[in-house]
């Protein structure tokens, strides 16, 4: 029968020391919306849960001279209601505001969403398209890992067992990009994406100066479609160019057939939504 200690450390040092003494027997819990479900479904059977909710100072969204900083304990609801995220990191707003329900978003954290490393994580593609860097802290100090290198497989990341994800950094340059994320799902709430597409674009006149395209549920981990990005760079904006980018991105992806969607359909949706999200990103840039 499931039985665990519920540990509530007050600061990171205490987290590290608990992680050290419990090792693999402990699981970190932030909002708990995944962990508690996994325990109930018997996918997890920890001897201890180490709660990160005591680290209240890691729940923030702010902008500094060196870029945007999002604390790992920021809830989806915080991102959704942040005017900074809404206006300057719009794709992240799209992703965060469509996770589960208000009840879930009130407690689920962005750090948890990323560390859970589901291919379907709704904040993963937006953060990838915004060039986010994950800041990990361990007993020996901090290290920074670009999100492109963060995921190593389904439910797997580069986070070492004695490390805690503390922050995402987004370069200030990304503020000049327009961005948008589409969650393709059967329902408008309480759903996982069949496919997620995030696009961020920087434009000068008619020329696409820079682009990021990120995809969820298109591969074993959330991914960037870098060939499509490279294709777009320097091109003159047109429907044809965006459609072509969608095709390239679809080719880069390696989605699978699952209960939630067929691979061919997912590829089609990449083709469909790369241009649509590009248009939405540009529209937002215009209206800023």
């Amino acid at each position: 029968m499931i039985d665990y200690e519920y540990l509530k450390p007050k600061d990171l040092e205490e987290v590290f020391s608990l992680l050290k003494s419990y090792g693999e027997r402990a699981v970190l819990i932030a909002g708990g919306t995944d962990v508690m479900v996994n325990i109930r479904n018997k996918k997890l059977a920890p001897e201890a849960l180490i709660s990160l909710r005591g680290l209240e100072d890691l729940a923030y969204v702010k902008k500094g001279e060196d870029g945007y900083h999002i604390g790992a304990l920021a809830t989806h609801r915080m991102l959704e209601t942040s005017s900074l995220v809404q206006s300057e990191l719009s794709a992240l707003y799209d992703g965060a505001s469509q996770v589960g329900s208000v009840q879930i978003r009130n407690v689920a954290t962005v750090g948890g969403n990323i560390c859970n490393a589901a291919p379907s994580a709704d904040t993963a593609s937006p953060l990838l398209a915004l060039d986010a860097v994950a800041v990990l802290r361990g007993p020996g100090g901090s290290r920074k890992v670009p999100l492109t290198e963060f995921f190593t497989g389904p439910s797997q990341t580069v986070r070492a067992s004695d490390e805690v994800l503390v922050e995402f950094e987004i370069p200030s340059e990304m503020g000049q990009f327009g961005s948008a994320y589409h969650k393709h799902s059967r329902r408008k709430a309480m759903d996982l994406p069949i496919l997620g597409v995030a696009v961020s674009l920087k434009i000068e006149g008619e020329i696409i100066r820079d682009a990021r395209i990120a995809l969820s549920v298109a591969a074993p981990t959330p991914m960037r479609a870098m060939e499509a990005e490279a294709y777009l760079k320097g091109k003159k904006l047109s429907d044809d160019v965006l459609i072509e980018a969608g095709k390239i991105a679809a080719n880069e992806a390696s989605p699978r057939d699952s209960l939630r969607g067929k691979a061919w359909y997912r590829k089609e949706m990449i083709e469909t939504f790369v241009p649509r999200m590009a248009h939405k990103a540009l529209e937002r840039l215009k209206n800023r």
Partner: peptide, 22 residues
């Protein structure tokens, strides 16, 4: 498992699913 909301209560004024709230 937090998918239906029948357990919704307010914690410090915010709606949460009490079934997955430790």
């Amino acid at each position: 498992v937090g998918e239906c909301g029948a357990c919704t209560v307010l914690i410090d004024g915010k709606a949460v699913n009490s079934c997955i709230y430790p």
